[in-house]
Design a protein around this nucleic acid. Structure first.
Lengths: 358, 358
DNA sequence: AGCAAAATTTGAATCGATCCAACGAAAGTG
DNA sequence: CACTTTCGTTGGATCGATTCAAATTTTGCT
């Protein structure tokens, strides 16, 4: 039944149907945006013309320019787009961002890219009112790019310690302390740390000076928190191996291989993400280590998966829902000020931690 | 160090910096879009002016109007935005769409809304080159809305049988037959069906005429496939209870309560989605039914979760990755034709199905 | 120097709408 | 009937860029 008219190309503009209906473009525009102010007879005529010519309604491209606001916020990461749907932490965070957006009627644009050049272009040309930046790997470059757009933006999971960028994150030092404290309270004294990246693209055992020159302040803060607590109870922190992973299964397993090849393997693993911790749980189970009897494991993040792992994971829960909401609010109600918010974390004790053997 | 200039508002346009640098706006534009054709001295001068005035690069809003292409595809559903990150099927599909988009450098815009009015507006004003529409609940309305935009679009999981809309889906009848056949081959003769919605917002036992008037052709096709196979082996299909669920835990559990309150409960459950099947597995385990010894369960979709459930779920796997890729391709290379593709499904036998007792 | 060819730069036109001041017509008022 | 309101409509200005034919400057060559 529809328009045969729409046969070939479709350069049907508002002006075209205005002409066809014999009204000015101003009136035609009103028919769509404020129908109540135009006389019914005219309104019907214009609508009929639009229908006949196969006009799909005012093109948002045009409206946008005039209106200024896109009514969408961009979420950016330096990972591939599928990161948003694959990574547990990202997923939970996105779900909470979604809710906040739903509530305000804003849309979400996913911005990301495999290579750096494409990423820059994608950020520069994203049609959004502001950015929420996921700072995992490649975070600093991303923050720089986003900042250049001169749009409101907020860094999540702050790994940029630059005071000039708005950020919402958790108190990493306190959280890490809390994690370590839980294990020391249980009596553990032999630890290993499975860290997130300190700098991009490196994995393996890291030295103290490598830590000092970390790109990622978040990672460094968590380590600081761990070590603070460990030294408080008299552990010689220079003997605690710290392995940098890429927050994936491969690098985590490689680290575990080395850690458990040692003469005196640790009785407790401090993992900087639940993802790392969950891989660790799997690896230990495959190697017939019993958790928590042989080894205690504690994660960081509090993703839903941690509640249903085997065994359920003790972890440091971030207030992810709250963070997403705050981030969206920061963009939509941006007043130009940069604000940095540090949210508190909570220790969630589950079955992956217990006193050491003996 | 940055621009103090950006103190208050920011109406810095390309024209402003052109004036400041003493060149025409044509040249200023070239500095950003084709730097190689402008003399170095001029280029530097313009860039310096831009920097000094706190210009964040050419505003995509302006460029867009000229260029026409947004370079982003919209993914729409009538569910809340968080559906994309919560629902297992959606997540896998989105991951595959993401990959296809990454490969071509296109962005993704998530379009959705709680209420109908907002949804219409969001679709009408989405800045995208085309839509991929998730047809779950509210699918028909969504398809209508998307079609009105007169942009390329493709329906996923086709629940619209309207031949005029492009769609990519699986052969629901064949898939459902395959599922039922697997169970009949094992010897089952007493079944119950846990269906997806036939129409919006209703749950509970459905009658044959309700099935005939289904809004969702996909749901109806799956049922047709089931029943075809069951009657082939001589089951009186009028005795097979069909329960409509909302593809969520609540309605599924309600259906199960009723089903297993019967005198002769089924020995096999045909679930139209893995989500329903997984809830069923949980419910049965809580009620001390043994799967597959007391009851066999088969799902539909083939989401990753089905492989790691307890027990692992026998299911009909959709070629989700392929579907996502095809959908993106259909949008980006749209030639105006509508094409409908029916992809084949595969039976994946795992531990949730076995011969009935005795 | 003189002239053609090549390299840059210019400025008007365009993309597709919305907004608004001004205007004409119809309705209301004394 | 003259005069103010009210209502609807008009058309120009604007949003912020890109594009391209034409104008101008440089460069190359004899």
């Amino acid at each position: 039944m529809a328009s045969l008219t729409a046969g070939n190309r479709r350069p049907v503009r508002l002006a075209d149907i205005a002409k066809a209906a014999g009204v000015s473009h101003g009136t035609a525009s009103n028919v769509f945006s404020r129908p109540e102010i135009v006389r019914e007879e005219v309104r019907e005529r214009v609508k009929a013309a639009a229908e006949a010519m196969g006009y799909g309604g005012p093109d948002p491209k045009g409206r946008l320019l005039r209106a200024g606001k896109v009514n969408a916020i961009g979420v950016a990461t330096a990972e591939p787009l599928s990161y948003f749907f694959d990574d547990p932490f990202a997923r939970v965070m996105m779900a909470s961002i979604s809710q906040a957006c739903d509530a305000t009627g804003a849309g979400i644009s996913l911005v990301s890219a495999a290579n750096n050049e494409q990423l820059a272009w994608n950020i520069q040309s994203a049609l959004v009112d502001g950015f929420i930046v996921f700072c995992i790997e490649g975070g600093s470059r991303l923050v720089e790019l986003a900042r250049e757009r001169k749009l409101p933006f907020v860094a999540l999971d702050l790994d940029s310690e630059d005071g000039a960028v708005a950020a919402i994150g958790v108190d990493n030092i306190a959280g890490a302390s809390l994690a370590a404290r839980h294990l020391t309270d249980l009596g553990h004294r032999r630890f290993a740390v499975l860290a997130l990246p300190f700098v991009d693209g490196r994995t393996g055992l890291v030295s103290p000076e490598q830590v000092r020159s970390a790109t990622y302040a978040g990672t460094r803060d968590r380590l600081t928190g761990y070590l603070q607590e460990l030294s408080r109870v008299g552990v010689d922190t220079s003997t605690v191996p710290v392995y940098e992973t890429a927050n994936d299964a491969t690098s985590t397993r490689a680290a575990l291989e080395t850690i458990f090849a040692a003469k005196e393997p640790p009785t407790a693993i401090l993992a900087m993400s639940d993802k790392i911790a969950l891989v660790t749980l799997e690896w230990l189970s495959a190697r017939k280590f019993s958790v928590p009897d042989d080894v205690s494991v504690i994660g960081f993040d509090g993703v839903p998966e941690s509640a249903v792992s085997e065994p359920p994971l003790t972890t440091i829960a971030q207030p992810i829902a709250e963070m997403g909401g705050l981030a969206v609010k920061a963009i939509l109600e941006s007043d130009g000020k940069v604000s940095r918010q540090l949210l508190p974390v909570k220790l969630v004790v589950r079955a992956s931690s217990a006193p050491p053997r003996g």
